[in-house]
Amino acid sequence: MSRAAEGRAGAGGAAATIDVDQALSLYRQMVLIRGVEVEIETLHKRGRMTGSFHSSMGQEACAAGVCAALRQSDIVTSNHRGHGHAVAKGIPIEGIFAELFGRSTGVSGGRGGSMHLHHRESGFLGENAIVAGGLPWAGGAAWARKKRGLTDVGVAFIGDGGFAQGVTHEVLLMARYWEAPLVIVCENNGLAHSMASERLFGEPGSITRIVEATGVRSEFVDGRDVIAVAETAAAMVEHARTVGPAFIECQVFRVKPHSLSDPDYRYREKDAGQAWLETHDPILALRRRLGEDQGEALDRIDAEVAEEVAAASAAAEAAPQTPVEAALENVYLTAELNKNG
């Protein structure tokens, strides 16, 4: 066990600790998410992928740390910046690449693309391209599990932009009222597209306090520190499993522009993302904390993940394009209704 990960108190005083194997597993998840996002960006720049793309680079620790607290049967909904959550929840990355390439082997049949990853088997209900739109789904689905006598929890990832949506407030109140096993994870990356969240809500931590006032248990965590995120998430997921809803505000940073085509130099320092990465990269931070004695293991992970990403991307691209008939399929389950106008 490294000094860094040893003996930390979990959020809320729970005695959760992260051992070295868990830390390496978190490292692997973060590197995998980063690798997927970098690969997607590269493919877009080379003109081999189409559609929209919202990179989660820099936010890996939140996805990895939160999903480390979940079982496969637990469920997740996400948002337009959801690749990291999808990877961390366990969607096979070839299925993600294939979806973005528009292949029928994609997790959604190659019809939804980047913002519409769905994978029931791994408990990833879906992304949602409407800000905070996936939040009530997570609440209802998690509550459904509870009604069936199961102990699964639901996690809904939103951003600071999503906290400005009315439905977020509605779901917070319903989750409390019905004691739903729901954890809302608000990734506060400081920017709702171009609007600074500090101007809207106040300094980081303010969202946590707003939620506390509703009576929902709420914690703030530094999203650069994957160990802290994992410990906080473990405590909050346990709270949701046994008591009721919980909320995590995770302070992260959006390294890339809002989307591929977003001219972010108009509203923040040029190269702000790169500058942040050089000093605050959560992957490098964990590497430093694990220390020299884990250097070899970490290098091995880096190499394995690079190979895994390259292989998955190539296999996904080689699959056949989604056939044109697929555009008309799976609208209704009732067979006689699939007339498609």
């Binding site: 959604s108 049949g109 939804g112 519409h116 769905h118 029931r120 879906g126 799976n330 209704y332 389950l333």
Partner: peptide
């Protein structure tokens, strides 16, 4: 959601 999930839901 049925369409978007390719019939998973």
């Amino acid at each position: 959601v049925r369409f978007m999930s390719n019939g998973q839901f």
